[in-house]
Write a protein that binds this DNA or RNA. Sequence first.
RNA 1: GUGGGCGUAGCUCAGUUGGUUAGAGCGCCGGGUUGUGGUCCCGGAGGUCGGGGGUUCGAGACCCCUCGCUCACCCCA
Length: 414
Amino acid sequence: MSLQPVRGTRDILSEDAAQFRTITEIARETSGLFGYDEIATPIFEFTGVFSRTLGEATDVVTKEMYTFADRNGDSLTLRPEGTAGIARAVISNGLAQDAPLKFYYQGPMFRHERPQKGRYRQLHQVGVELLGVPGPLGDVEVITLGAHILERLGLHGKVRLEVNSLGDPESRAVYREALVAYLNGRLGDLSEESKSRVERNPLRVLDSKDEGDKAIVAAGPLYSDFLNETSASFFGEVRARLDDLGVAYTVNPTLVRGFDYYCHTAFEFITEDLGAQGTVMAGGRYDGLVEALGGPSLPGVGWAAGIERLALLMGHQVSPARPIALIPIGDAAGIMALKIADALRREGFRVDLGYSGNIGKRMKRAGKLNACAAVLMGDDEIAAGAVTIRDMDTGEQSAADLNRLAACLEKYKA
RNA sequence: GUGGGCGUAGCUCAGUUGGUUAGAGCGCCGGGUUGUGGUCCCGGAGGUCGGGGGUUCGAGACCCCUCGCUCACCCCA
């Protein structure tokens, strides 16, 4: 047995954990301001929940899912993303009648990919879903919510928003046909990767990173020219309302989505600071998803953001909270310190008790923990009902009445 | 799944054409200082040299396999 963590997984320790919490709490709070309610679905589902929604031919479904047989033979899959499970939960719980539904979620996802910077096999996402709003205002709300969260995380200057329209199914079919016809004519000039994509997933050729492919794509049919009346006006409305709200974006006609369930609006918040993993938050509209799962016709739009990538972008800026260190000197003081620590904690103070060592050791520990204050208490002092408070930054010491200790420490409250 | 770079102490790394007891800095523990932290001085602990096999009198170094990390492709958050 290896004691290494499984490839693509990692332990999240103190500062990282604090930053994770910061990100999820800001995302949850901000989502709350928009009326989004937290939902937690299971981290595994019947395999069909994902294969039917993401698309049987997509890479995630064909080679990246953690799929296993349950003891009774059912095929289960660790969720590779959050939307399908929520759609399933909406159907299971008969929630569609209460539409519009607004959900915020957070948690681990699993994809068997080759690990890379900002890419893990167990990754963590925050995301939102808005179900039951067919019009473009839903897209605008969801994108704006994402922008608010990124702003609150201090990433406003580090990301840019790109949007595109994938059209409705009708536009998509017409465009797909035109694109395939065009690409087949240039087949010999395409990269090997893209050649195979022409049959399997032709829209994927649009965002190829191969320079030769890019040139071919640039000279080919543009999706925007193939949008029918409905799709074009939908996209126009989305952009107009984003403009009204002052949400900056650029239209990227080659922006496509990896999962089959998307239609109309696709968008990504992108950074240049994370190497090849530039996408930090991505989403779009998925009107056919709930129906594809066997539920009612219920349109949806949402996004997901990778917590690891957000954390990487934010850098380490979380400094741990500063405790008050209790430093008893002597056996009687040690017992008293236990009671005092307990009482102070009930009052909301962050209190550290080291449990061993002489005064020098304990002071050293206080320094290492970056304590804001130390409370020194000797047996004789306790007997006299007094202790000494040392400000760890200034070094100033003052006597404090044991009965009024909480009041004297008020300025050091966590 | 494909390709490049890299695995030596908790961390960052050095280690000569293959040579005997594998080093440094930081951190950790202890002492100088048993009622006062950060600085300073002294001492100490800590290593299957990622793992396995091979070549050799001798391997941290060379060869093969394997695991992992990392960057890129693919795909995606």
